[in-house]
Design a protein around this nucleic acid. Structure first.
Lengths: 349, 349
DNA sequence: CCTAGCGTTTTGAACGTTCATACGGCACGA
DNA sequence: TCGTGCCGTATGAACGTTCAAAACGCTAGG
């Protein structure tokens, strides 16, 4: 016979107390304040807990403590997923980090920012979550303002672009540093005319990466005139912009792209002109998406430390929730460069 | 001044009752059994609920009803994500479908099947979820057996491959039908020697798709001898197998692949031999991953109806949870073919 | 006129946990 | 001997909701 009683919900704190010959409160203390118990009592209670397979009922605990031990996080749409799998890797790491801190993660999908705020409001009023993780922050983000006004606890993955002083906690990856690392790497490979293929002016992330390219070029005394072009993300736009950089009279010999999609387009532009990507013209991407390792030549790309970001975010959020920290905490993480053939030409295909 | 009182958790059922001049139970009924109330009372109570921004406290409700209104679902690892973004699209749809049925989705990430079972056990004993959605089912899946033994409610996205009779509910996409549709489409395009590039024998999904190819070839009286090759998923394996199909004395003039990754490899094999993919040799993939629309030629691919699958899964699970249905419910959905240039050659590049 | 029955609303209890506090025993110092 | 303080444990209440059942007002039927 299977010990189904141990695996199913059923044993409650009273059953454990009876079994161990102590009061309910002592069982509670065994789990929440073990130091308050006499070692012998603790051992006996823990043995009973183990034997009966007891876990505190989440609802009862939440009701009493007024805390759900759940973190809410919006699941981004397909579109964002297509952009490179960054958000999935992040979500995965977030779940693991939350679990380590004994928090659950509640995900929800919504159409737009307004609906996301509705979801926030609903979850807060139902006391279904203790706090949120905000992803995909951007200029004029209504969500952060709303959460601040509502008094909800949250940590953003991404900076509050445009805001003067940090009004809320965030953790982000230093995109500019990632681009700088790309340029440095290209310089070390002997490339001198490093073009930039980025996103249109105005987006925080896009401007930041452009800034990184500028800084790196200045630091290495590289030319910048007519070497930066910007458009919406996509393989086709990447190809078009890279093409223009290559067709200039003084054409680029390397192209730094702000996304792997644009980089894949850039490689196409290079090859369409009879040049060898990675040898005649180097190309780098951003995000180290699954595609980066699959395309040929393999794409040199900036990899964000998503596991670390998730871990830090959970830490900052739980500190906020438990009152261990008060004011806004901010943290900028440094990405790493994954070098492949598109910038080294070591492998011919 | 901001009406923060209305947006924060705070107003409880007693406050609403006082405001509307009725008892707590009447407020409860207004939300759960509105037909029991006099229309005038209902209107008055709903107005108070609206004015105070009241939402029932989830923990209290769960505690009383012994139901969390939460569905648990494992978030698959990066590896599976790389396979084509199917699982992300599914998760997104699952969240939306759950929300429509007033359920929340709790996601967790684990390393292996054993840990997943531990997570199940933990969530059940804490009464943190009412049921599970199982993804990535396969032969000798311990998870379904464990859940059945533990008496937990769940619906699998994917068939219990290998089991004789359905012991639990599942919803799946008819992969064989997807491959059949691919073959039919290729025949209509005039191709006759349709090769198959699949996964190794033994996996439920892989064998099913192979079966679909066999059926379609028989139905259209196409040759099958030496036209099916199988290996682990990947761009490189796809290229290798397709290469062997093309190098045969009586070579294939079309190649059906069980994944977009293998299909991308197959296109490479075609082009490496100086042939034009989509014209000389057609190629089809599976899953309609983001890459399928980006590569050139665009990849004809089988698209799974994931939104519908998620919706049906939530429906079946909630029926199970509310006792509206008893025995195992099973449902097989038909995928659609997204036709692009890799099988039609309409666009040259 | 009484009662049965229906529709609507209220009352008390219960879900399982933790908080605040009270209690008992023991060691110690006065 | 008697407080005093401390450690370990127990008791009652409370969190906010819904269930089960009672009570209310009204109409209809005997």
């Amino acid at each position: 016979m299977v010990r189904s009683a141990a695996t199913r919900a059923g044993a409650n704190i009273t059953a454990v107390a009876l079994h161990a010959g102590v009061s309910r409160q002592t069982v509670s203390n065994a789990l929440n304040r073990p130091s308050r118990l006499h070692p012998d009592t603790l051992a006996r209670v823990l043995a009973s807990i183990d034997e009966l397979g007891y876990r505190p009922n989440q609802a009862a605990r939440s009701l009493r403590t007024q805390a759900s031990r759940v973190i809410g996080c919006r699941l981004l749409s397909e579109e964002a997923v297509a952009a490179g799998g960054v958000i999935d890797r992040f979500m995965h790491s977030l779940c693991i980090a939350a679990r380590e801190s004994r928090y659950d993660v509640l995900t929800f999908a919504v159409g737009d920012e307004g609906e996301e705020i509705d979801a926030f409001s609903d979850l807060i009023r139902r006391t279904a979550v203790d706090g949120f993780v905000l992803t995909g922050t951007h200029r004029d983000d209504r969500r952060a303002d709303w959460l601040l006004r509502s008094g909800a606890q949250f940590v953003a993955f991404g900076r509050p672009w445009g805001a003067a002083s940090p009004r809320h906690s965030w953790v982000d990856v230093d995109g500019a540093a990632g681009v700088e690392a790309s340029v440095r790497h290209l310089v070390e490979q002997g490339f001198r005319r490093v073009g930039f293929v980025g996103w249109p002016e105005g987006s925080g992330v896009g401007d930041d990466r452009h800034e990184g390219w500028l800084r790196a070029c200045r630091a290495h005394r590289l030319p910048i005139q007519h070497l930066a072009l910007r458009a919406e993300d996509g393989v086709d736009t990447g190809e078009a912009l890279a093409g223009r950089l290559l067709d200039r009279s003084r054409s680029a010999d390397a192209i730094v792209c702000v996304s792997d999609r644009m980089a894949i387009g850039a490689v196409r532009a290079v090859e369409a002109r009879g040049l060898v990507a990675g040898v005649d013209v180097a190309v780098t991407g951003f995000d180290d998406s699954p595609a980066a390792g699959v395309v040929r030549p393999g794409l040199t790309s900036v990899r964000q430390p998503l596991e670390q970001a998730a871990r830090r975010i959970v830490q900052v959020l739980t500190d906020l929730l438990t009152g261990r920290s008060q004011g806004p905490v901010t943290e900028l993480l440094t990405p790493t460069l994954v070098v492949r053939e598109s910038s080294t030409g070591t492998a011919r295909w």
